[in-house]
Lab assay of single mutants.
Amino acid sequence: MDSLVVLVLCLSCLLLLSLWRQSSGRGKLPPGPTPLPVIGNILQIGIKDISKSLTNLSKVYGPVFTLYFGLKPIVVLHGYEAVKEALIDLGEEFSGRGIFPLAERANRGFGIVFSNGKKWKEIRRFSLMTLRNFGMGKRSIEDRVQEEARCLVEELRKTKASPCDPTFILGCAPCNVICSIIFHKRFDYKDQQFLNLMEKLNENIKILSSPWIQICNNFSPIIDYFPGTHNKLLKNVAFMKSYILEKVKEHQESMDMNNPQDFIDCFLMKMEKEKHNQPSEFTIESLENTAVDLFGAGTETTSTTLRYALLLLLKHPEVTAKVQEEIERVIGRNRSPCMQDRSHMPYTDAVVHEVQRYIDLLPTSLPHAVTCDIKFRNYLIPKGTTILISLTSVLHDNKEFPNPEMFDPHHFLDEGGNFKKSKYFMPFSAGKRICVGEALAGMELFLFLTSILQNFNLKSLVDPKNLDTTPVVNGFASVPPFYQLCFIPV
């Protein structure tokens, strides 16, 4: 009986604490739906499609509103004006990374994606500088992407125009580009180590996009005490870190300090320079996690976009025909596509942009946080508050993009057929937390897609009208449904 009384008292205290925290903070924060004790607004949000729920709530509470995930307040920004004001106009104040408990377990605050403060700034600055020195957006990395595009075309030829699921092959190409940047090595598509790495990356994007992960991140005790797919994700990350550590040891034994070959060499050189400046942010643990982040951000996002792009091109054969006509006119058949071609191919450029806009790969991006107490639109948001960005509300804005739910390359073309930029184009987020590999991803999408369409016609196994382009999961990332196609050599 005594234990029951204690339990009831504990629960009562928890409920009172929950109510007090919510009521004391709500006077400062933007308005929002009334949260339930302990669980907050979790029942009012469709976990399978958070973005749709945010759109519905914005119609009631406006472009800036507050939700509670458990006891934790989260300020939501919906629509271009609110997102721009926060991420661009007040970029420094909104540059923090929001709480992501599962990532905390995986990387302990290291790396480039989930770190904060001085650690994040130094690692991000170093990573950007190193990638630029190796030619991100310049010639040397373009050579690597072109080489991988040629290998991709050869792998597709091996399908002999038979029906195939493109998931694996389209994942190999961007993964190999990242391998060449980090390890100075590309792998054969049949290499077992490479296959294991690909498998872990593919599993992780599916797990991260599941409703279960949303629950884990908002009720963090689940991570330590409950079984579930989150444990598989943590094991996959541990596998990748151990693999990278092996490569780091190989580099330490063979590195030429006067001739760095890749990202690992550059990081080890930085560690050597910083060894007298303790404590340094440049450690082996930081290198492991930064490399894992580059793999995660640079492989599955690009391969998922490529997979979605081919599905949309199957669905819209008239678009595919126009792209192939432009390829034939500008590039021809006797040389590989290059980035200089893009400025002469406005329709193809528009298609690449429209694919990214339409699929809305990361509907709410990753959570941000404010780095200080900030007054925002007459609300006071306390330091450390998590900020949720609705990228969907920007990419699918119906004023900027008429009929935003329709796939239409003319969203990025003017009346004369010239490519038209849009400030609403934010597939990689915006501001200080914009994806480090934005330029690389854009290069890969253009070169891989043009190389495929230069060499193959795409054949659907069903009537294009019957192809479903609805994402199968739409949590962290929008993942396309399973499909097969035939690559018919031109």
Rank of each mutant, 00 (worst) to 15 (best):
K59Y: 06
S51V: 08
E246P: 03
E122Q: 15
V113L: 12
F295N: 01
G417C: 08
S365C: 11
S422P: 07
L208Y: 07
F446V: 00
S58N: 10
I99A: 13
I74Y: 15
L156S: 00
I207E: 04
M271R: 09
L268S: 03
I99F: 14
T392L: 04
C372Q: 15
L17S: 06
L128G: 10
R150I: 09
N403C: 13
H353A: 11
D463S: 09
D89W: 05
V479M: 15
S478C: 11
G27N: 15
Q454P: 00
P480A: 10
G416E: 15
P101H: 14
T364D: 04
I141S: 04
E444S: 05
P464Q: 06
K273R: 12
G91D: 11
M269P: 00
V64S: 03
F126E: 02
M136Q: 14
S242L: 04
K420R: 15
L453S: 01
L87C: 10
P382N: 04
S422C: 07
H368I: 05
F94A: 03
G296W: 14
I181C: 06
F100T: 09
G70S: 03
F114P: 11
L467Y: 05
T469F: 04
A86V: 06
G228N: 05
L268P: 04
S343I: 14
Q192L: 11
F446S: 01
N418I: 10
C486P: 01
C151R: 08
T304M: 15
F476S: 08
E250L: 09
L102G: 07
E326P: 00
H230M: 12
E354A: 02
P260G: 10
D191A: 05
L19R: 15
L54T: 02
K72R: 11
R124G: 03
H251L: 03
K121Q: 14
V490E: 09
Y424T: 09
V330F: 06
L11W: 13
P227R: 05
C10N: 02
L461R: 07
R357F: 00
S365D: 10
I327Q: 01
A291L: 11
S451P: 03
D188G: 11
V292D: 03
S210V: 03
I327K: 00
K185T: 08
I374F: 07
P317G: 07
E199D: 14
L43S: 10
L458D: 01
M443E: 02
I112E: 11
T66G: 01
T34A: 08
N204D: 06
Y243H: 06
L87A: 05
V237S: 11
F114S: 13
T386G: 10
L195G: 09
Y483F: 11
P166G: 01
V60G: 07
T302D: 00
V8K: 00
T392M: 05
K138W: 13
K423H: 12
F183A: 03
E93A: 12
L440N: 02
C10Q: 02
F187P: 01
E288M: 14
S429N: 10
R433P: 06
R144A: 13
K235S: 12
A350F: 01
F448E: 00
G416K: 12
G32S: 04
N457G: 09
S51E: 06
I327W: 01
N56I: 07
D256R: 10
P427E: 13
E199K: 12
G437M: 05
P402G: 09
